[in-house]
C-alpha cells in the first residue's frame, strides 16, 4: 500500500502539465464544438429529428457520401498499394519526386483540385471531350464525385503501407521460396497478410477523410438534389435556409458514422499491435 503512494521517478517530468494541456486542447478543439452539435439537435423533437435525417433527399445524400467514399477508398487501397510497392521495391530516377507528389493532395486546397478536375472532365474539357463520344460523363455525375474523393484519399494508403512494406526483410521472401512457395503464394500467404492491417487502416482513413470532404466535391458534382448532392452540402443548404437544428441533426448522423469508423480504425490498430507485441 505504501509502495503505491511513493511517486514514481521519471526521467522527464511534467506529466501533470502535459496531460492538462492535452485535455484542454482536445476540449476546446473537439469535445466542446461536438457537444454543441448534440445540444443544438436536442431542440428538435424525435419526430422532427427523424423527419429531417430520414428525408428522401437526406437518404440519397448519405448513399452518395458513403457509397462514393467507399468506392474511392477501395480504389485507393488497390492503387495506393501499388504506388507504395513501387516506391519501396524499386529504384528509379525521379523516385523522390513521385514520393513527394503522393503528399500533394494533403497540401493542395481541395477546392482548387475540384475546379481543376471539373475543368478537365466537363464535356469540352481536355479529358472529358474524349470521354463524351464514348458516352462516359464524369463531371456533374457520381463518377466525378468518386474521382475527386479518390484524389484526396490517395496519400493515406500509400503512407500507411509504405513503412510496413519497408520493414519486411528480404529474407522473409527468401524463406518462403526455399520452403517451396511460388511467387504468388509468397505474395498471398506471406506478404499480403503482413501488410493487411496497414492496408485496412489506410483504407479506413481514406474512407473517413472522403466522407468529410466538401470543397472539391461541390465543384465537380453539380449538386443536383437526389443525384449528386453529398451530405455536407445538404448541411450547408440547411444552414443557408436558417434551419440550424436541421443542419445539426444531419451533422449528428455524420458524426456518429465518423465515430464508428474511428472506433473501427483503433480496433484494427489494437489488433495489429496485439499480433506483433
Amino acid at each position: 500500500m505504501r509502495a503505491n503512494l511513493v511517486k514514481k521517478q521519471r526521467v522527464i517530468p511534467g506529466f501533470g502539465l502535459t496531460m492538462g494541456y492535452s485535455l484542454l486542447y482536445l476540449s476546446l478543439l473537439v469535445l466542446i464544438p461536438l457537444a454543441g452539435i448534440f445540444l443544438k439537435t436536442t431542440t428538435l423533437s424525435w419526430a422532427q429529428f427523424f423527419e429531417t435525417v430520414a428525408a428522401p433527399r437526406a437518404l440519397a445524400s448519405y448513399r452518395l457520401s458513403f457509397g462514393a467514399s467507399a468506392v474511392a477508398a477501395l480504389l485507393n487501397a488497390f492503387f495506393g498499394f501499388i504506388v507504395a510497392w513501387v516506391l519501396v521495391r524499386y529504384h528509379f530516377p525521379g523516385k523522390q519526386i513521385i514520393d513527394a507528389i503522393v503528399d500533394l493532395p494533403f497540401a493542395l486546397p481541395t477546392a482548387v483540385a475540384g475546379i481543376a478536375f471539373t475543368a478537365l472532365y466537363t464535356t469540352n474539357g481536355w479529358i472529358g471531350r474524349w470521354l463524351a463520344p464514348l458516352g462516359i460523363k464524369v463531371a456533374f455525375t457520381p463518377v466525378g464525385v468518386i474521382l475527386v474523393l479518390t484524389f484526396i484519399g490517395l496519400p493515406f494508403v500509400v503512407r500507411t503501407v509504405q513503412p510496413v512494406l519497408q520493414d519486411i526483410q528480404p529474407d522473409i521472401e527468401e524463406a518462403a521460396a526455399v520452403l517451396g512457395a511460388r511467387r504468388t503464394q509468397t505474395f498471398t500467404r506471406v506478404l499480403l497478410p503482413m501488410l493487411w492491417p496497414a492496408l485496412v487502416t489506410g483504407f479506413a482513413m481514406a474512407f473517413a477523410r472522403a466522407v468529410g470532404e466538401y470543397g472539391s466535391v461541390i465543384f465537380i458534382s453539380g449538386n443536383m438534389p437526389m443525384r449528386t448532392e453529398i451530405t455536407p452540402l445538404l448541411i450547408i443548404t440547411k444552414l443557408e435556409q436558417y434551419d440550424y437544428a436541421g443542419a445539426t441533426a444531419l451533422a449528428v448522423v455524420m458524426l456518429l458514422v465518423s465515430f464508428a469508423l474511428l472506433l473501427l480504425i483503433n480496433t484494427l490498430q489494437w489488433w495489429t499491435r496485439r499480433q506483433r507485441v
Binding site: 526483410q169 529474407d171 522473409i172 527468401e174 497478410p193 506483433r276
Partner: peptide, 14 residues
C-alpha cells in the same frame, strides 16, 4: 529441396 535457416530466423510473424 534444401532447408535453410536464416541468421535472423525470418519467421512469418503473422
Amino acid at each position: 529441396r534444401v532447408g535453410f535457416v536464416f541468421q535472423h530466423y525470418a519467421l512469418f510473424r503473422h
